[in-house]
Design a protein around this nucleic acid. Structure first.
Lengths: 164, 164
DNA sequence: ACGTCCCTTCAGGAAAATTTGAAAGAACTG
DNA sequence: CAGTTCTTTCAAATTTTCCTGAAGGGACGT
C-alpha cells in the first residue's frame, strides 16, 4: 500500500500507516504506530494529520484514556472518490485555465508576421484547442466518476478527433 | 502540461518537451528544444529517450540533415492508454501479489494463540480479503478502460461490500 | 580512414523533499 | 494552578532526486 500511495502522489508512510490501522481490529495510538513502523513520533504525527485531512483516518478517543486513538476509514471507494474530487479535478481545472490563458496570449500576437510565423501561430492555436477540448472532456469524465456514474473513454477520443 | 505530467509520476521536463513538440508544426531538433526550454542537451536527451520509450515522441529524420528530429505523438488518448496499460496495471498486479503473499503469511501463523491474538489474525484476514477483492476489481476496471470499454465505479464499491 | 558533428552516458554537484530531534503548545490530573 | 503527558511545529540534517558539464561512442562526408 505504501508503494501504491506513493504512486498516487502521497508520502509512502501515509500508505503504511493507513494500512496498519486498516488491518488493526481496534484504533491505535501514535505510540503504537511509531513502534510498529519504526518511525519517529513527529513523522507519525505529520502523516496522520494529512491522512485526517484526506478523511482516510479518523481521530477517536477512549473514555479515561488521555492519548488520541486513530482508526482507518474502511471504504476505499470513498477515499478514491475524494482524491479524484479534490485533487485530480483541481489539477484538470488548472490545466483548463492554463490552456485558455495560452490561447489569449496567441490572440495578442502582433498582426505583422511572416507567413511562416503565421502558420506556426495558426498551428499552435489549433493544437491548443484540442488540448482544451480534451481537458474539458476529462473534467466531465472525472466529474461523472466522482458522482458514482459510469464513464466511457470514447468521450475522450471523440473530444480529440472532433475538429480534425 | 509539465505540472500534469509531474503529477502523473513523470519528470516535469518530459511534459514540457512533449508540449513544445506538440505545438510545433514541424519536427524539432534537440538543439532547438534545449534552446526553447533552456535545458542542457543531456537533459533533453534523457527526457526524449524516456518519451520515446513511452511512445509519446517519435524520432524522425530529414533527408540530407544529419541531426535527429523529433515529433510528438498527437493522440493523447493513446498515450493515456499506454500509461494505464504499462504502469497502473503493473502496479495493481504487484499489489494483488503482495496481498496474496500477506495472506499466506497469516496462514502460517502458529496455531497456539491467545484468544486476543486469534481475533486479531482473523480480522486481518478479513481485511486482506477485502483488499484483494478490491484490487482485483480495480485490475478488471483498468483492463476494460485500456480496451476502450466503459467502466462503472459501482463494480469497485461492490467488490468492497461483497463479504461484509 | 580520418575528422567532424551529434547523441548518449557517466560522475560530480546542486536543488528538493523527507526525517528527525528538540522545543513549544494543549489537555488532563491531582 | 502546577506538574505531567501527549501532540504538534519548526529548523537542521540527511537522503534522494535531478541537472549539468565533460568524456565516450557512432555515423556520415571527404
Amino acid at each position: 500500500m505504501g508503494r501504491l500511495m506513493e504512486f498516487w502522489g502521497f508520502r509512502r508512510h501515509m500508505g503504511r500507516i493507513w494500512t496498519v490501522l486498516y488491518l488493526s481490529p481496534e484504533p491505535m495510538t501514535t505510540l503504537a504506530l511509531s513502534e510498529t513502523l519504526q518511525l519517529s513520533s513527529s513523522a507519525v504525527s505529520l502523516s496522520l494529520a494529512e491522512l485526517v485531512r484526506w478523511g482516510a483516518v479518523r481521530k477517536t478517543w477512549r473514555p479515561g484514556e488521555r492519548k488520541d486513538f486513530y482508526e482507518a476509514e474502511t471504504s476505499v471507494w470513498k477515499l478514491l472518490r475524494r482524491v479524484y474530487e479534490r485533487r485530480e479535478l483541481n489539477l484538470i481545472r488548472e490545466a483548463i485555465e492554463a490552456f485558455a490563458e495560452a490561447r489569449k496570449h496567441l490572440d495578442d500576437a502582433p498582426s505583422q508576421l511572416t507567413p511562416k510565423e503565421r502558420r506556426r501561430i495558426d498551428h499552435m492555436r489549433k493544437r491548443l484547442c484540442r488540448l482544451s477540448a480534451l481537458s474539458r472532456a476529462g473534467e466531465r469524465l472525472v466529474g461523472l466518476l466522482v458522482a458514482g456514474r459510469g464513464i466511457h473513454p470514447a468521450d475522450l477520443r471523440a473530444a480529440e478527433e472532433q475538429e480534425q
